[in-house]
């Protein structure tokens, strides 16, 4: 995973709450067996509407998505994160993220930055009034800078550390191999085995 300490890019105001993962990537696009090539699938149904924000310049070049509360609800599909990343997004900002989506983001180097809804509204106004405004997300200081406005964001400290270091979770866990093997010896005998 590429380390990410600070990111600057065009902000995209997405005025919608409850953006579920079926909207982020409809199920018909989940049939692929690769991890990349999902950029065309991102918001596929909404993108058919020419007024949709990503069909408008300069938002189509955006890399920081600013959305309403409860982003990423529903299905566990990590394809939602792959599609956002493939399109070019590096950061999603929202007041509330669904737990699984937030977990998936952290594993794939997509920053899920939690910003209060009041501040999201503020960012929306700036990004709508001045399309193309760049947003800088600083993981070191946990701040979002948009035009002249700076607001704080929340993110789990452990996830932040992994993002900044670009660390692979599996590698980290395998360092605990001894403890895992030890644990396995104490598992009760009634537990089922599939084979």
């Amino acid at each position: 995973m590429e380390p990410i300490k600070k990111h600057t890019g065009i902000g995209v105001p997405l005025r919608a709450s409850n953006v579920d993962t079926d909207q982020i990537i409809p199920a018909v696009y989940l049939k692929r067996v690769t991890k990349t090539g999902f950029d065309d699938a991102l918001f596929a149904n909404w993108r058919k509407d020419e007024k949709f924000i990503l069909n408008r310049e300069p938002y189509s070049q955006g890399t920081v998505l600013v959305a309403g509360p409860d982003f990423g609800t529903g299905s566990s599909r990590e394809h939602a994160v792959w599609a956002l990343k493939d399109y070019g997004f590096r950061v999603v900002i929202s007041d509330r993220f669904a737990d699984i989506f937030r977990g998936n983001s952290g594993k794939q180097g997509l920053v899920a930055a939690q910003v209060t809804q009041d501040n999201v509204e503020l960012l929306w106004k700036i990004l709508e009034n001045e399309p193309g405004t760049e947003v800088t997300v600083d993981l070191e200081n946990k701040t979002v800078l948009c035009g002249s406005v700076e607001v704080p964001f929340e993110i789990d400290d452990y996830v932040r550390w992994r993002l900044m270091e670009g660390l692979d979770d599996i590698g980290l866990t395998l360092q605990q191999e001894g403890k895992i093997s030890e644990f396995e010896k104490s598992r009760p005998a009634w537990l089922p085995k599939t084979q």
Binding site: K35, I100, G103, N104, D169, I170, T173
Partner: peptide, 13 residues
């Protein structure tokens, strides 16, 4: 429920 990265993580560990 878990995402695909976690699926791989459980498979490996």
């Amino acid at each position: 429920g878990i995402g695909t990265s976690e699926v791989e993580h459980v498979m490996a560990t």
